[in-house]
Amino acid sequence: MQDNRKKCIELAERIYDLDIEVYECVGSSLGRTFTGDRRTCVENLANLMSTRPQGHLLRSELALISNMARTIRNPQDKSRVMKKYDDILKEVESLPTSFGQGEIVDQNRAKLNTSNLRQKFSKDDHLIICIGRSQGSAGNDIGFALADALRINYYDVEIFTEVLRRLEVEKDSIRDVADLGTEIIQNKYQRGFNSVKGWRNKIKEFDRYHGLTKEDAIFFNQSDLLCKMAKEEDFIVMGRCADVILANNHIPHISIFITAPFEQRVHRIMEVNNLDYKRARRLLEKQDRRHEKYYHYYTGLKWGDAMNYDICFNSASYGIEESVDIIERMLNQNMNH
Rank of each mutant, 00 (worst) to 15 (best):
A138C: 12
G139S: 00
G143C: 04
A145K: 11
D148G: 07
A149C: 03
I152H: 02
I152F: 04
Y155L: 06
E158S: 12
T161C: 03
E162M: 07
E162Y: 08
E162R: 14
V163P: 05
V163M: 03
R165G: 13
R166A: 07
L167F: 06
E168P: 03
D172K: 15
D172P: 04
S173M: 04
S173L: 05
I174V: 12
R175Q: 15
D179K: 13
I184G: 10
I185C: 14
I185S: 13
N187W: 02
Q190T: 11
G192A: 06
N194W: 01
N194Y: 10
V196F: 10
K197Q: 13
K197R: 15
W199Q: 11
R200F: 07
R200D: 11
K202A: 12
K202H: 01
R208F: 01
Y209A: 15
H210S: 14
L212K: 12
L212Y: 04
T213M: 06
K214E: 02
K214A: 10
A217G: 06
A217N: 00
I218M: 02
F219C: 04
F219L: 08
N221C: 01
D224S: 13
L226E: 05
M229T: 01
A230T: 01
E232S: 09
V237H: 09
G239N: 02
G239F: 03
R240I: 02
A242F: 14
D243C: 08
D243P: 07
V244L: 10
A247V: 05
A247H: 09
N249M: 03
N249S: 09
P252N: 06
I258D: 05
I258Q: 08
T259R: 15
E263L: 15
R265Q: 01
R265G: 08
H267C: 07
H267I: 01
R268E: 01
E271W: 06
V272E: 13
N273E: 11
N274Q: 14
L275I: 03
L275P: 00
D276R: 08
Y277Q: 09
K278M: 08
A280H: 08
A280I: 10
